[in-house]
Amino acid sequence: MEIEFLGTGAGSPGKFRNVTSTALRLLDERNSVWLFDVGEATQHQILRTTLKPRKIDKIFITHLHGDHIFGLPGLLSSRSFQGGDAPLTIYGPKGIRDFVEVSLRVSETKLSYKIRYQELTTDGLVFEDAKFRVYAQHLDHRIECFGYRIEEKDHPGELQVEQLQAAKIPSGPVYGQLKAGKTVTLPDGRVINGTDFLGPAQPGRIVAILGDTRQTPNAEKLAINADVLVHESTFAKGESKLARSYYHSTNIQAAELAKRMHVKQLLLNHISARYTGKMAAELQHQARDVFKQTRVVKDFDEIEVPFEKLTKEGTPS
């Protein structure tokens, strides 16, 4: 699992930062990519990465401001041209379907795949499969806005081969069945429960990706115990009143949230064009005074989301 930032700027494209788009690369986990927001020229940014548009099967939109959605029509069209024929699902506030369908209809764009829409009106679970759950929560922005919490389900523990050998259980296809936690009957009549030979489960990873927001209790629900929190940082230390009046957050507010909610790593994005070079670095320094594991990301940064290390007893190390 990796997070790749396709755009980290706020409001309008800048010389060094494009507007918001974040890719969650789940190629090993489910051979797909999920996008969170699709700002203008996102497809141009993708050309500078190894991402394949046909791998994108879910798009999560936080809100309908232009710097978060203006790249959608072009990306959807290019996905069709580049061999994408599998269905794609778009999640977002009410109105996202109208925006996409009007854009495609007026431009007479025909897609080679079906788009499914899930317009969100309430908080809670919006997607679940065998490996992941995704939750949405309303945030506090000028228009309806959501944040998303992606929870990976726990991975089964490793098969304890030494214990199997000590029990004189012969190797072969039976090991695969036991690793899956199945109960098998051996040729000698013994009934073996696979769960008895599995190590502790590996906790799944949690990623929280927030849209534009003032501070709100719902952000705590999204961020709690997250391995990675992606949070906007439109304003800097000492600008909390300004941030509130524009329905945004400061770097310090994001850092305080991360510390309070026991986040492991904070990634600050949605950086105003006012902050370049040393000023952007200062945003990071200020936030690290509150929460050390903070990083101000830039376009094309790739961040791996590691598994939590466990002791032999299965507790966090």
Results as ranks from 00 to 15, higher is better:
Arg214Phe: 02
Lys241Gly: 00
Asp196Cys: 10
Ile209Ser: 02
Gly211Ile: 03
His231Leu: 13
Gly204Lys: 01
Ala273Tyr: 03
Phe197Pro: 04
Ala180His: 09
Glu220Ile: 03
Gly277Asn: 09
Ala255Val: 04
Leu267Arg: 12
Leu198Ala: 09
Arg190Gln: 11
Gly211Leu: 05
Gly204Met: 05
Lys179Phe: 11
Gly204Pro: 04
Thr183Glu: 12
Leu257Arg: 01
His262Leu: 06
Tyr247Glu: 01
Ala180Ser: 12
Val191Thr: 15
Arg274Glu: 13
Val191Gly: 09
Ala219His: 02
Arg214Lys: 14
Glu239Phe: 00
Gly194His: 10
Val191Tyr: 12
Thr185Tyr: 00
Gln177Asp: 15
Ala236Pro: 00
Gln177His: 12
Ser249Asp: 02
Asn269Lys: 14
Lys179Pro: 00
Thr183Tyr: 10
Ala254Gly: 09
Gly194Tyr: 10
Gln202Ala: 06
Gly277Pro: 08
Ile252Asp: 03
Gly176Phe: 09
Lys237Phe: 07
Ala243Asn: 07
Thr250Ser: 00
Pro200Thr: 07
Gln265Glu: 09
Gly181Pro: 12
Glu220His: 10
Gln253Asn: 08
Thr250Ile: 07
Val191Ser: 05
Ala201Phe: 07
His262Lys: 15
Lys264Gly: 05
Phe197Ala: 03
Val263Lys: 07
Asn269Asp: 10
Ala226Asn: 06
Lys241Val: 07
Val263Cys: 08
Thr195Glu: 15
Thr216Ala: 09
Leu210Met: 12
Val191Lys: 09
Phe197His: 12
Asn251Gln: 01
His231Pro: 02
Thr213Lys: 00
Ala273Gln: 15
Pro200Ala: 11
Thr213Phe: 00
Gly277Cys: 06
Arg190Ala: 10
Asp196Trp: 13
Ile224Arg: 15
Thr216Gln: 06
Thr213Asp: 05
Thr250Gln: 00
Arg205Pro: 00
His270Tyr: 04
Asn193Lys: 15
Val184Thr: 07
Ser240Leu: 06
Ile209Asp: 02
Ala208Tyr: 01
Leu229Pro: 04
Ala226Leu: 05
Arg260Ile: 01
Asp227Met: 03
Ala180Phe: 06
Asp227Thr: 04
Gly238Val: 13
Ser245Tyr: 13
Tyr247Thr: 05
Pro200Asp: 12
Val207Lys: 01
Phe235Asn: 08
Leu186Pro: 10
Arg205Gln: 06
Glu256Lys: 15
Leu267Gln: 11
Pro187Met: 10
Leu210Phe: 07
Tyr247Asn: 14
Phe197Tyr: 15
Ala258Phe: 04
Tyr275Cys: 09
Leu198Met: 09
Ala223Thr: 07
Leu186Gly: 10
Pro217Phe: 07
Gln215Lys: 09
Asn225Glu: 09
Val184Tyr: 08
Ala258Thr: 03
Ile209Asn: 02
Leu222Arg: 06
Ala226His: 01
Thr185Glu: 15
Ala258Gly: 04
Leu186Gln: 10
Ile209Thr: 03
Glu256Val: 05
His270Lys: 14
Leu222Ser: 04
Ile192Asp: 06
Ile224Val: 13
Glu239Met: 15
